[in-house]
Design a protein around this nucleic acid. Structure first.
Length: 313
DNA sequence: TAGCAGGAAAATC
DNA sequence: GATTTTCCTGCT
């Protein structure tokens, strides 16, 4: 393994492993990867990882020994047989089209704390804003790194955000999310949320844990059904979680109207701004999980991509 | 300048 | 228990 200082360079073979780095990193699951020329740079596990895809090879460089080929395989979940996932989808026109268009897009195995914090910031926001918020929080509270002469910052540890003032967090452009982020950081720092428990439990049990109340108070302020589903899907390997944001709701209305109840379908079809009530979210999510099966989460990500691509031609 | 997009929580019915 | 309002930023 060639190493200079802490720098390490390596390759990951993709023979008979369907994978698209672009589609994966542009799919709205992750917010910290940046495209620089032919390379993608990301800060993961406290270091910088640089990747380029060359057909059946991932060319990689990293700033830390832990960021090796094993890490890359695990991070992009390359052990998951994507053809089996595709085969488990309903074999309809929409899914066929989505898979063709975004072939090789995978769900990433994100770090759980960063994923939770990112999706708390994601409420009532869009991808460019989320990226901006996460970047500012990282540069303000994370550890500075330099790689290839470019400055990066690690995502701050929970204890750092737990002790930050609301004012300091608001300065990162978080708005009312600042207090949610601080509360969530405190809960994680005080170990009131046990991430390993989330991994062991099945979807339903893990969701209960994330959304639970104690002493009449929420465990995690700022974590509702959608955020919980994102955390479970993107960092806890719950492939059957089906987060519904506005894009997925629109995709369902357009391609799978039978999954939605009539009232919701009418509102979505009207084109006006639509927010799902809690009960609408729960019933729609349940129907979708039943329809799309054990890999409903993968199906959801392809529908999300399709809905966004077709809205912005 | 106003108006809108984007989830969760709190207030209110 | 279900609906409505509030929270904030960024873009048009």
């Amino acid at each position: 393994m060639p190493m200079r200082g802490n720098r390490m360079e390596f390759q990951v073979g993709l023979t008979r492993v369907p994978f698209s780095l672009e589609h994966t990193l542009e799919s709205g699951q992750v917010f910290r990867w940046v495209n620089q020329g032919e390379w993608w740079y990301g800060v993961v596990s406290g270091g910088v990882l640089k990747i380029r895809q060359e057909e059946e090879t991932l060319r990689c460089a990293s700033s830390a020994e832990v960021l090796d080929s094993g890490f890359v395989r695990s991070y992009f979940r390359l052990e998951q047989d994507l053809e089996l996932v595709y085969a488990s989808f309903p074999q309809d026109q929409t899914m066929t089209r989505a898979v063709q268009r975004f072939y090789g897009m995978r769900l990433v195995r994100q770090e759980r704390w960063e994923c939770l914090a990112s999706f708390v910031l994601a409420t009532n926001s869009n991808i460019p804003s989320i990226r901006r918020m996460v970047a500012k929080v990282s540069s303000a509270f994370g550890e500075a790194l330099t790689f290839d002469g470019i400055s990066f910052a690690t995502f701050p540890r929970p204890e750092r955000l737990a002790t930050a003032t609301i004012g300091e967090l608001e300065a990162c452009g978080l708005g009312y999310r600042a207090s949610f982020l601080k509360k969530v950081a405190q809960a994680v720092d005080e170990e009131r949320v046990d991430f390993s428990e989330l991994t062991i439990a099945d979807y339903t049990a893990a969701r209960e844990i994330l959304l639970r109340r104690f002493f009449g108070e929420k465990l995690l302020l700022g974590v509702g059904p959608k955020v919980a589903d994102c955390v479970l899907l993107f960092s806890c390997e719950k492939n059957d979680a089906f987060p519904i944001d506005v894009w997925v709701a629109r995709a369902l209305a357009r391609f799978y109207p039978a999954i939605l109840n009539d009232g919701l379908l009418r509102r979505l079809a009207s084109g006006r701004k639509v927010t799902l009530s809690k009960s609408e979210y729960e019933s729609t999510s349940l129907s979708a999980r039943n329809y799309f099966g054990g890999n409903a989460g993968y199906a959801q990500q392809y529908l999300f991509m399709l809905a966004r691509a077709e809205a912005t031609p």
